[in-house]
């Protein structure tokens, strides 16, 4: 009898654990699906400069991810069914900072402050749309940074950085965003 009660408690416990896990992972996957969709939509309201000598002719639209990819395949899924600026989309995982010049969009996962500074130093002045979802990253110089909003996801834009990057961001996109200043720029 004792054995049986123990077994039942064990089953109940494991079931609860699985249920809890699945709900939290479900919420996370929904969040990143939305973020992936947003990333796919941003280029519609942003224009890249045409004469970019550092870039190859536009045959592929590169979305690069640096750091630990949090999308769990969502971004690849979105990319596989969409075209951006009439080009097929390629999602690349980047490990070497030097290779980022080929990217049109660079998603920067949460990383160390040191590494972020290095990456941003690399992208500064380049027509690369940097995106992140870590609090404070926009202030560091990332162009677009997601932040949680009630029932949804908001995004903030570092306007100064966007101007330096020669990317032209539509006012229609700007009106939806929270405009932030670089922390270094602050007086």
């Amino acid at each position: 009898m004792k054995y049986r009660i123990f077994r039942s408690i064990y089953i109940l416990f494991t079931t609860c654990t699985i249920l809890l896990n699945s709900t939290s992972s479900h919420a996370a996957s929904k969040e990143y699906a939305l973020k992936a969709a947003f990333i796919e939509k941003f280029p519609r309201f942003i224009s890249w400069p045409h004469n970019n000598s550092t870039q190859e002719p536009d045959t592929v639209f590169n979305i690069c991810v640096i750091g630990k990819n949090p999308f769990n395949g969502m971004l690849d899924k979105v990319a596989s069914i969409s075209t951006i600026k009439n080009n097929p989309v390629l999602v690349k995982q980047i490990t070497v900072i030097d290779k980022i010049s080929r990217c049109q969009i660079l998603f920067i996962a949460t990383t160390t402050n040191d590494r972020l500074r290095k990456i941003l130093a690399q992208t500064k002045g380049q027509p690369i749309l940097t995106i992140s979802d870590t609090t404070g990253y926009a202030q560091h110089g990332v162009l677009i940074n997601f932040y949680p909003r009630k029932n949804s996801i908001g995004f903030e834009i570092n306007k100064r950085a966007s101007e330096q990057s020669r990317l032209s961001i539509s006012s229609r996109l700007l009106k939806l965003s929270r405009i932030v200043e670089s922390s270094g720029d602050k007086p």
Binding site: R44, L173, L176
Partner: peptide
């Protein structure tokens, strides 16, 4: 309608 494109695209009902 053109001005509301982003509102619809990013599902921003408040905007």
């Amino acid at each position: 309608g053109s001005y509301a494109v982003t509102d619809l695209a990013f599902g921003d009902k408040a905007a």
